[in-house]
Design a protein around this nucleic acid. Structure first.
Lengths: 206, 206
DNA sequence: ATAGATTTGTGAATCATTTCACAAAGTCTC
DNA sequence: GAGACTTTGTGAAATGATTCACAAATCTAT
């Protein structure tokens, strides 16, 4: 498949969210213009984004809301469940485990690991926290799709290496480091410090 | 000032982080190539990014680590403290309050608000949780720089409007909605669902 | 001093993304 | 069902970001 820009994929996710809102409101069809207005972009952008994957609209009318939502779910690969592990049972990890949007989209946390003996053995939302030393033993042939890294910066790379060796191909990284991974492994970073500094820059340069 | 791309600003933040690492290791000078290697980019990119703001290097030698770090802090506006308020005393908010990188960079949480009577009055890391109804009263002439929104999606826009009316010019938004704000207000979104769906897309289309 | 090795800073070229603009296809009204 | 109106889908143009490539500056070793 033709390479699609990351920015495009993110907008598709947004469109899907808006379509679901519209669906809840009982709106049957929506134009690229309405979608653009909701998302702070332009109608041409919306149509171009969709055009990479096919033509889903009806000229003169717009897009059928439930149908387009369905197509976007397909495109984004949301038609299935994803098995997710959490590395690091700290504050952020705890917030993630209880985050309902996670479940709702089919992302299921199946294992949690930590090093802290005080945490190991505890149950979090029904999942027992395991010793990270048992990572390889526990995950052999488990078919894990995504690893969420919520550890201190110092250990993130070492854990990433172990994850990669286990064949996991997607990582959501909250540790404030740039991970080095093979190019067939997808990494998305959530870096709070970066966001704050971008705001600081914006406040400074106006 | 000439418009600088968001991607550039984010890379500058990264460079600063790397420079601080190098400083800790006692490294006195660094080349654009070394910096690029550390950050997974190219030396030309590093030099171009810096060139928007001046020329900080010495040909034949590279960049003086502490000096460049200082210049980047200036550029990013990190030479001062920022007064931050937290809207929403939930799980993520709790994680943020205790996040040390926050303090370290001069972002100080001075007020926390919630609607839940069970939370109002409690102390979080030394800061009392206030009723969100008292937002305007508490913040008048308080000189707040940044608001962090960690509320359910439903109330985020209403709160954003109130924040804007109070003259706050920067928002870090964790609610999974696209906020509508005047264009002189900077908004950065942290949207977990978007990141997960980008991973889902990456896993699906390979 | 001089020669050879590094490394910056930056226009120019390339590559990527967004916006424009309009024909084609459909809807809606009377 | 004819005419006016809407809205899509998409090449082409414009804009934006990254990479190339090289002169200029400085360093190092002798």
């Amino acid at each position: 498949m033709r390479k699609i820009a990351d920015s495009t994929v993110r907008r598709l996710s947004l469109y899907l969210r808006f379509l679901e809102e519209f669906e809840d409101q009982g709106i049957a069809t929506v134009s690229s213009d309405a979608l653009a207005l909701r998302g702070g972009t332009t109608s041409a952008q919306v149509r171009k984004d969709l055009s990479f994957f096919g033509s889903f609209g009806k000229r003169g009318l717009g897009y059928a809301v439930p149908e387009l939502a369905g197509r976007l779910r397909e495109i984004l690969g949301l038609g299935r469940k994803y098995r997710v592990i959490l590395l690091g049972a700290g504050k952020i990890g705890s917030a993630l485990v209880q985050y309902r949007g996670f479940q709702k989209r089919g992302f299921e946390i199946v294992e949690i690991f930590d090093v802290d003996p005080a945490k190991i053995g505890k149950r979090w939302n029904g999942v027992e926290v395991s010793d990270v030393a048992s990572l390889e033993a526990k995950l052999r042939d488990q078919g894990i799709d995504i690893a969420v890294l919520v550890t201190p910066a110092e250990v993130a790379q070492v854990l990433a290496d172990r994850i990669v060796k286990l064949g996991i191909k997607a990582v959501l990284n909250f540790a404030p480091v740039q991970l080095a991974v093979p190019e067939d492994v997808a990494v998305k970073n959530v870096n709070l410090a970066l966001e704050l500094e971008a705001l600081s820059y914006a406040l400074t340069n106006r």
